[in-house]
Simulated scan of single mutants.
Amino acid sequence: MASPKSGESYSASSSKRDMIPRGVKKPNNIGTATFVGARALDPFLQYSILGQGLGNGLISRLGGEVLPQGPALITNSFLDSAIGLSPYRTILFAMSAGSMLKQNITVLAYTQEEVTPQTGLIVGAFNAAMNSVNSLLFVCRQTSASTNGEHFPQSPLIVGSILYATGIAVELGSEVQRAVWKKDPANKGKVYEGGLFALSRHVNYLGYTMWRGGYALAAGGWVWGAITAGFFAYDFTQRGIPVLQHYLEEKYGAQYDHYKQAVPYKLLPYVY
């Protein structure tokens, strides 16, 4: 993304590429309910794909072969009887549910900016689409990360799960640290430079990229995981970070300049 023209304000330029109404700090109950409801539907959709055959017809029409579900890790176990998915598919389902919980917790407990109904629908649809692609790629034998009938261990699942768990922890942990700091009246109007944000100025974006890449890796393998992580890294570096930085520079001025000097890395510590 090209830098804004000299003297051009955030509201006149960068805000057009920003999904969040920066500076609009007011509740919108309908918007929040739309966001939470739309995200809450996603695990049901992923369960239908992973365990109930939704999408199998599409896979067959496209010339693919549906991957038979593997056995339970322990026959008649709780996972087998209560969820009805193989352990591998249960982990993928848990990734969908975990990301939903993370985002809904953030919106309900920590987000200050207004969440509009439009934003809630867009975020819900986007996450459902991304997660459905992951599930469908896994269920299709030709694209699945599973290479041995869903038996354990499988490298894509192990590495993907580590990336996913680390990414969720980094994204949520950094946002909680910042939100707690901002609640202190003594910090009003100041730039947060502590916690995980002392490693990179947009470390929460790094966490998101990590868990998205890990989820994709566990479902669709190494190439799909790299494509997904690359897509979000590109979007953040070319759109998300420049847009947000424009807003923060305009809002905090010299304070943010100091933060940039203290923490020179925009996304990945010691690299970028």
Rank of each mutant, 00 (worst) to 15 (best):
F35L: 11
L121C: 12
I241T: 01
I30M: 08
L267F: 15
L121P: 07
R22I: 00
V243L: 00
L136R: 05
R201I: 03
A169S: 13
G37V: 11
E114M: 13
E250F: 04
V133Q: 03
A179S: 15
W224P: 05
M210G: 12
Y270Q: 09
Q142E: 15
A33F: 12
A186H: 14
G64S: 07
G173D: 10
F197M: 13
V271E: 11
P153V: 02
S174T: 10
S132D: 01
G31F: 02
L157H: 06
K25L: 04
G160V: 00
Y256P: 03
K5T: 15
L79D: 14
F138S: 01
A40L: 13
Q112C: 05
Y88I: 14
G195E: 04
A40H: 03
I49C: 12
P68S: 13
I49S: 06
A219C: 14
G213N: 04
Y88M: 12
D184I: 09
T209E: 12
Q142C: 05
K182V: 04
L45P: 03
S13V: 01
S3V: 09
I91P: 07
V203G: 02
A109G: 04
Y259K: 04
Q112S: 12
P68L: 15
A186F: 08
S13F: 10
E65Q: 10
L67G: 07
K266G: 11
V176I: 13
S77P: 07
S99P: 01
A128T: 01
G167D: 10
V133I: 15
T111Q: 14
I168K: 04
L67W: 10
L101W: 06
N29D: 06
A179W: 14
I168W: 09
V191C: 09
N56S: 14
T90F: 12
D18A: 01
A165N: 08
A262G: 06
M100R: 00
S11Q: 12
L244R: 06
P4Y: 04
S86A: 12
G7I: 04
R141S: 15
I168S: 01
Y270P: 01
V271A: 13
S14N: 02
M95H: 05
P87T: 08
S77F: 14
Y234L: 02
L196G: 13
P4C: 01
I91S: 07
P43R: 00
S77R: 11
A216L: 13
Y247K: 02
A94D: 01
I227N: 10
T106S: 08
G167V: 09
T90V: 06
V123P: 08
Y215R: 01
R212C: 13
I20L: 11
P71G: 10
